[in-house]
């Protein structure tokens, strides 16, 4: 993962679900805990996201990272990223980007 500017905004979106409603917000690298930053770097390095067979009405999380976009199916979300996604969804519901 390229070293991002700690305050550069990273866009987070949730797509899909029954409603197909997009929830969107932004976050910065300096908001991440060490395990979260490591997990994001790992997801991007593995390059194994976004290749799952599409499943009806499931969620996908899109992260617009400095090295390129990452798509994570909800079932593939690494455990260390769950608190981050929960925080970002709460923020998107209160203060959409």
């Amino acid at each position: 993962m390229a070293t991002p500017h700690p305050e550069a905004p990273i866009t987070f979106e949730r797509h899909g679900g029954f409603g197909g409603v997009v929830l969107r917000t932004t976050f910065t690298h300096d908001e991440l805990s060490a395990p979260e930053a490591e997990a994001i770097a790992g997801v991007q390095a593995e390059g194994a996201t976004g290749h799952r067979e599409p499943q009806a009405d499931r969620f996908e999380y899109h992260l617009d990272l400095p090295d390129g976009p990452v798509v994570i199916h909800e079932d593939d979300l690494p455990e260390p990223l769950r608190p981050l996604v929960a925080r970002l969804l709460e923020r998107a519901r209160e203060r959409p980007a």
Binding site: G17, G19, R58, L89, E90
Partner: peptide, 20 residues
Amino acid sequence: DYDNAFWDGHRMVFGDGDGT
């Protein structure tokens, strides 16, 4: 806070919504 429902190929799964 799961605002979704889906059919997983075997069963229905329902969330309670997020309350917001």
